[in-house]
Nucleic acid binder design. Structure first.
Lengths: 223, 223
DNA sequence: ACCTGAACACCGTTCAAGT
DNA sequence: ACCTGAACACCGTTCAAGT
């Protein structure tokens, strides 16, 4: 897997950036951003807190590596023989589900752009948009917009998911929000007032895919 | 401005949540998330650190209030007589510019959803999409997707902007990224390799608007 | 009701010392 | 080359005490 193999690391429990990142992801998944501490990480890896700094520059570096690891895993393994539209949908859903499963990734994405994994997403979307017949002059902007859309909307969704995870369940939370929206007064907020009832019932995943589809329709309609 | 006026706060320098949030925004703008500390805030407001806790529950609450304040200011003042498409563009650009000017808002958006300012955005986009002729059954999903798109993409953009702000200028940073992309090898990354050169020259604001337009085209093409 | 500021628990990071 | 763990600087939050 690694480029250099450090002459077969002597012991299986030897420290490495990979093992550190792996443990960090577990801690982040378990308790969010605040649950990741160097002390906890050191204890989990049965070592001193300073040892981690030999493999990792600092906490930001560790968070970036963890984010990159999650996104990279989500993008690989895309079967590309289902047509451009379905391939795009598959990649998009992969990213969506990955961020949904690791909500802290959403916040990280808004802090450190230009992941090492970004070219993979860009390549996947760009080549499929080209196959879809998008003309050369529009290709760069369209691909950028699609990448930003998927990462951005997935991040937004993960932010919502966080609320449900904190004890109270999904429908209850959305029900409360819907009530607040419904109370906003039909004069100043006629649309919100009318649409509030649909809030608790909607499916985030379906809505995400609908958004991607709308975007694709716009891209193909534009030429 | 406030609902209750606390019988005309005695002195002009009296503490209030508004003044605290205002000072917090200035500190966040100046140095990012890490620059906001209760000690610094207390010194800036010439008070004790504990005093702030009388008006604000904790740091998360303060960050949420600051985020809401920025977004709320961006959404108000939308002249609505320029047609639905232009009104949507205006609201979207307002949010984009606000997040661009306050990059820390992007990260916050990925942490705390359901801002108090959200209904304003929802109302603006939803009513204009309706005016655009989007049929009732698609209205909720379309509006949700557009809101998530604008907030998400604007957040993604702010993440990029952070890099340029840290000393080195925009073109230099994007030039470096473009070089890395170009080196990725035309066999595995033909699209990225080919498109890398367009990276340093693109205009984020124009690309954002192009994305919103593509989305709108998709929405209108869908019926 | 609102402010003060010392105190507590905790955290990222460093570094001399080890192997 | 890599690990140890005490030490440093700093931070969010609390709370008894003031006005």
């Amino acid at each position: 897997m690694t480029t250099r193999q450090h002459r077969e690391a002597r012991r299986a429990d030897a420290l490495s950036k990979e093992r550190i990142v792996e443990a960090a992801i577990e801690m982040l998944d378990a308790g969010g951003e605040k649950a990741l501490t160097f002390r906890g990480l050191a204890e989990r890896l049965s070592t001193g807190s300073g040892a981690i700094y030999w493999h990792v520059a600092n906490k930001d570096d560790l968070l970036a590596a963890a984010t990159d690891c999650v996104i990279a895993h989500a993008v690989t393994d895309v079967a590309g023989d289902a047509g451009p539209r379905n391939t795009i949908r598959t990649i998009a859903l992969g990213v969506f589900d990955a961020i949904d499963a690791h909500p802290w990734v959403g916040a990280q994405l808004a802090r450190r752009p230009w992941l090492a994994a970004l070219p993979h997403i860009f390549e996947g979307f760009g080549s499929q948009l080209e196959a879809l017949g998008v003309p050369e002059p529009m290709l760069f902007d369209s691909t950028s917009a699609l990448v930003a859309h998927v990462l951005g909307v997935a991040g937004q969704n993960a932010a919502n998911g966080r609320l449900y995870a904190q004890g109270t369940d999904r429908v209850a939370v959305l029900g409360t929000v819907a009530e607040q929206w419904a109370r906003l007064g039909p004069e100043r907020f006629p649309f919100v007032h009318r649409v509030a009832a649909q809030l608790p019932g909607h499916d985030d995943r379906v809505q995400f895919l609908a958004g991607v589809d709308l975007f694709l329709r716009g891209v193909t309609a534009a030429h």
